[in-house]
């Protein structure tokens, strides 16, 4: 799969945000299609903080009903990209 430079930037920024929430995690081993909560042992507070961080970093509105779309790295990248179109 090829990625555009902007997707790569988005991905890197999302990983940086995740690193602030789970500093002990080895994000290089993250499976982009598997839930963060499953891989990084995030609880609901961590996930809420992650959503808030995404909102602030990318200036996007994230309704609670859309949370499932932000559960994986690829899902987040797709949502951020969609918000820009």
């Amino acid at each position: 799969m090829t990625t555009t430079p902007s997707d790569a930037d988005t991905r890197a920024q999302i990983l940086r945000l995740l690193g602030e929430i789970a500093p002990e995690a080895d994000l290089a081993c993250l499976n982009p299609d598997v839930s963060f909560r499953e891989q990084l042992d995030l609880d609901s507070m961590d996930f809420l903080n992650f959503v808030v961080a995404l909102h602030k970093a990318f200036h996007i509105e994230i309704p609670e009903t859309d949370y499932p779309k932000y559960m994986t790295l690829n899902g987040c990248v797709a949502q951020v990209a969609a918000s820009r179109t």
């Binding site: 609901s44 507070m45 809420l48 959503v51 808030v52 909102h55 509105e61 994230i62 309704p63 609670e64």
Partner: peptide
């Protein structure tokens, strides 16, 4: 909670806990 969080900005949402 769902209704309440729907009215709140993401920075002020509540958790069930």
């Amino acid at each position: 909670l769902t209704t309440e969080n729907g009215c709140r900005p993401v920075t002020e949402r509540l958790l069930v806990s």
